[in-house]
Structures are given as structure tokens and as C-alpha cells.
């Protein structure tokens, strides 16, 4: 009994990290009104998915996927390759988001969401 509990808690710890990060990021995006904080939340959210993919690719006991003598078990390189693409997408998203924040700040002189909407409604 205790063994299975330990297995789920410790054996799957990387998945717990993923879920924790995912929820943290998601919460920040929803709950924070500061646009920069939203962008950072979005980043944490995406990073959790990167970790998830890397976890999926790991084969326990496997080595780096380079053929060499005496090695038979390899980790799956494909998820890492995929996630490299997704990281690039994430960087692009962040840069677009940050440049939007810069322009919002120029136009509204604030980066707080509620103040921005208040300004537009007042007009």
C-alpha cells in the first residue's frame, strides 16, 4: 500500500512538477491585471508543457540516442525535437506580447488592465 502511494507521489514527481507549474502559470494569467505579469504567467504555463514533452521522451535506463557499442536502450529524441519548435514559438509569442505591452504603455501610460479599460470607457 505505502509502496504504491510512494510510487505515485515520488515516482511520478516530474508530472507533479508539470501540473504545479501549469496551474501556477494559468492562475497568474487569469488573476493578475498587470500585463507584464500576464506575459510571465503565460511563459510559466508554456514552460510546463515543455517539461511534459521532455518527460514523455525519457526512457528509463536509456541513454542519449546516439548509436554506440554496448548500448541498446535509447531515449526517444522526437519529443525533444518537437519541443524545440514549441520553445521557438513560445519565444516568438513572448516577444510579440512584450512589444504589444510597450505600445500599450505608450498609448495609455499604464500597463494595468483595469486602468486601460477604464480609460476607454471614460471617453
Amino acid at each position: 500500500m505505502t509502496e504504491t502511494v510512494l510510487d505515485t507521489v515520488l515516482g511520478l514527481y516530474n508530472y507533479w512538477v508539470v501540473i504545479f507549474l501549469m496551474m501556477t502559470g494559468f492562475y497568474i494569467v487569469i488573476a493578475r491585471g498587470n500585463l507584464i505579469k500576464k506575459v510571465i504567467g503565460l511563459n510559466i504555463f508554456q514552460a510546463s508543457v515543455f517539461l511534459f514533452y521532455i518527460t514523455v521522451g525519457k526512457v528509463s535506463g536509456g541513454t542519449a540516442p546516439i548509436t554506440a557499442e554496448g548500448l541498446e536502450v535509447y531515449s526517444n529524441p522526437l519529443p525533444s525535437v518537437l519541443i524545440l519548435t514549441a520553445i521557438v514559438v513560445g519565444v516568438a509569442t513572448t516577444s510579440v506580447a512584450l512589444s504589444l505591452v510597450v505600445r500599450i504603455r505608450e498609448a495609455y501610460e499604464t500597463i494595468e488592465e483595469d486602468e486601460i479599460y477604464a480609460q476607454d470607457e471614460a471617453r
Binding site: F26, V29, L35, K38, L42, F45, Q46, V49, F52, Y53, V56, P79, L82, A86, V89, T93, V96, A97, L100, V101, R103, I104, A107, Y108, E113, I116, Y117, D120
Partner: peptide
């Protein structure tokens, strides 16, 4: 200037949507 917050909001929600899709694809893989 309203175009800017509109684009930002679309970016946030669009990225969440796309990341959800990415998670789904990962699970299926």
C-alpha cells in the same frame, strides 16, 4: 489605440488555446 489591448487579449487567449492543443497532442503522442 483600442486595437492594442484587443490584440493583447487575443494573444493571451489564443496562446492558452494553442497550448491546450499542444498538451492534447502531447498526450496523444
Amino acid at each position: 489605440r483600442q486595437a492594442l489591448p484587443a490584440a493583447f487579449q487575443y494573444l493571451v487567449m489564443g496562446t492558452i488555446g494553442a497550448t491546450f492543443i499542444l498538451i492534447g497532442i502531447g498526450l496523444m503522442y
